[in-house]
Nucleic acid binder design. Structure first.
Length: 583
RNA sequence: GCACCCGUAGCUCAGUGGAUAGAGCAGUGGAUUUCUAAUCCUCUGGUCGCAGGUUCGAUCCCUGCCGGGUGCGCCA
């Protein structure tokens, strides 16, 4: 908010000073790297000085002479080689506080241009449990969806479940030959996984089993009633259980349009692409090749082999007539564009699939799609050996297992602290802290970095973790509980202590931070910001007693507490983390 | 081979074309008859993988190397 205003004012000052800005140049204003210099800073004068052949400090002075910011700044200075440093006035900060208190969006302005955004995330496979690898897609996708909605976009979340594919040959064969109905009732996914693993192992030992599985798959694809019924039951049972998991994680989807939903569209899609010359038949398969529209090194359909660029086609139909991952994705894009009128589609999928998406996006564009498609990639979660967790063999840590353990540890901590709460309250608090900790551990990290899975990392309750942020929130609420009766917060505010000012300043930055998150699809920016808010609040809390203060000072401090409370609660909710009044 | 991602403190990780590169953990020494200590404050800890280049200024951008990971015609 302040950043945007200062940017506008700077631009106006350039105009007023008669300085013509280069085409497309927008003076950048950022939060000051060191608060000693001010609250915000701009390097515009230094950047322009070369192009305009002027001394940067002299140029800065010209701008300052024309700058009209007295309504929000108490001081502007030119420092070092030509930095413009802005110090906000107490009045401006106070005004911001009252906005944070009253506004139902906590002072975060909506986007100027709302878009329709489809977000594709989580996407678990049928008959396979969600493991820690699903943490990233699920939590990052959910958080991005929350933030996008919060700042005014229309968001459609779609869980593109892996409910069709070659694994069903094995599952159906296993269902027919060794399914345990009793166990299926108890824990459907576990039983299906057990069966799948057993058959998978059997196919490796015995070629004949593999052939039988393939037969079952073909029958399914040809619409055999029995196999179709088994498949449907597998999907139903798995989805039912998945819904419970998502419920526990507080993750919601608008749609569950799995791969099977697009089956009917695949044959016509391939026919259409052949007809339009986008795809062609090669070695029996149908595939999309390079159209030579971009440089070879940027072309997803080319690969270099000994100084020679060779075709790296994207296959959309196998020699045996079967369709592939890419085919379904193309049909899915059609649907999302046509039915949902998507302006943008975001895929929250791991980095290893980058090439796949580059090919699919390029193919979709050749078919005329103008929708902006973004692959929001993330790094892998590695095993203790530093290598990728293997999903095929299934030797990974289960998602629910992690959450349960986290809740248990939080429960133990609550027990140890013993605030005299009921068991039910402790359970609820442990649930919020436990699942919040796991989410925060994921979301506070840069999505592109690979990381080693560690129980300690996921479950730590000390340091930069969810409990730290929740504890700050709890401290704000505790003060209001002690007030005995409601206190009317009045607009007469006065900032006297540095800790008060620092907190007010930090809270004001929420307006900018929420938008920055979507700039690069990075929830960790929000997590980091909230950590700073909590840290600043804890500092304020130690330095400034609220309840023992009086008059305007007390009113100001209470206002700061309420504003902190609102920013933390809202911010955490954008990460998908709930808050608790006590802990 | 080619493409993409990563390399920052003992460990786990943030961060940015700008001013003295930051947190947490671990280690150290303190603070509380509390507004909830799941807190705060000290100190210790760095050739930002290496070498060039662009720039007034590079850990960040470019090039080349080194190291780790991933992906590259009929799995999803």
């Amino acid at each position: 908010m302040f950043r945007a205003v200062l940017t506008d004012r700077l631009q106006a000052a350039f105009t007023a000073a008669g300085i013509a800005l280069p085409e497309g140049f927008v003076p950048s204003v950022v939060i000051a790297s060191d608060t000693r210099y001010g609250d915000y800073q701009s390097n515009a004068a230094m950047v322009l000085s070369k192009q305009l052949k002027q001394n940067p400090r002299a140029l800065a002075q010209q701008i300052v002479d024309q700058l009209q910011v007295t309504d929000i700044c108490e001081k502007i200075s030119i420092d070092g080689p030509g930095f413009l440093n802005f110090t906000l006035s107490p009045a401006a900060l106070i005004q911001r506080l009252s906005v944070i208190l009253k506004d139902d969006h906590v002072g975060v302005p909506p986007v100027t241009k709302a878009k329709r955004i489809v977000i594709d995330f989580s996407a678990p496979n049928i008959a396979k449990p969600m493991h820690v690898g699903h943490i990233r897609s699920t939590f990052i996708g959910d958080s991005l969806a929350r933030v996008a909605r919060f700042i005014g976009h229309t968001v459609i979340t779609d869980n593109h479940v892996g409910d069709w594919g070659t694994q069903f040959g094995m599952i159906i064969y296993g269902w027919k030959t060794q399914l345990d109905q009793a166990k299926l009732k108890l824990d459907p996914i576990l039983e299906l996984v057990t069966v799948y693993k057993a058959i998978n192992a059997a196919t490796k030992a015995d070629e004949a089993v593999l052939t039988l599985c393939k037969t079952e798959l073909v029958k399914l694809q040809q619409g055999d009633p029995e196999n179709l019924a088994i498949w449907k039951e597998c999907v139903r049972l798995t989805l039912e259980q998945l819904e419970k998991v998502y419920g526990a994680l507080d993750v919601k989807f608008d749609h569950y349009l799995g791969e099977s939903f697009y089956n009917e569209a695949l044959a016509p899609l391939v026919a259409d692409m052949l007809e339009k010359g986008i795809a062609k038949v090669s070695e029996g398969a149908t595939a999309v090749f390079s159209d030579g529209s971009v440089k070879p090194e940027n072309d997803p359909f080319l690969i270099s082999d000994k100084d020679e660029w060779k075709a790296a086609p994207c296959i959309i139909r196998k020699t045996d007539g079967g369709f592939l991952y890419a085919t379904t994705d193309l049909a899915t894009i059609d649907y999302r564009v046509k039915e949902w009128k998507a302006d943008e589609i975001w895929y929250v999928v791991g980095a290893p699939q980058q090439l796949h998406f580059r090919q699919v996006f390029a193919a979709a564009k050749r078919r005329g799609a103008t929708t902006e498609m973004t692959h929001i990639a993330f790094g892998s979660i590695l095993g203790p050996d530093g290598k990728m967790f293997k999903t095929r063999s299934g030797e990974t840590v289960g998602l629910l297992e992690v959450i349960d353990e986290a809740i248990e540890r939080a429960r133990a901590a609550a027990e140890e602290k013993d605030q005299g709460l009921s068991d039910a309250d402790k359970d609820e608090i442990a649930r919020i802290i436990g699942s919040g900790s796991v989410k925060y551990a994921e979301l506070s990290q840069n999505r592109l970095t690979d990381y080693k899975f560690s129980w300690d990392k996921m479950l730590s309750l000390q340091g930069n973790t969810a409990p730290y942020l929740l504890n700050a929130y709890v401290r704000t609420r505790s003060i209001f509980r002690k007030l005995e009766g409601t206190v009317e917060l009045t607009p007469d505010l006065e900032i006297t202590e540095p800790a008060e000012r620092a907190l007010a300043m930090k809270l004001a930055q929420f307006a900018e931070n929420a938008h920055d998150v979507l700039e690069d699809h990075r929830p960790n920016l929000l997590a980091n910001y909230l950590y700073e808010v909590a840290n600043t609040y804890h500092g304020f809390y130690e330095a400034c007693n609220v309840l023992r203060s009086e008059g305007t000072i007390r009113n100001t401090r209470l206002t700061l507490c309420e504003a902190t409370s609102r920013v933390l609660k809202t911010g955490l909710s954008l990460l998908g983390i709930q808050t608790t009044e006590r802990m």
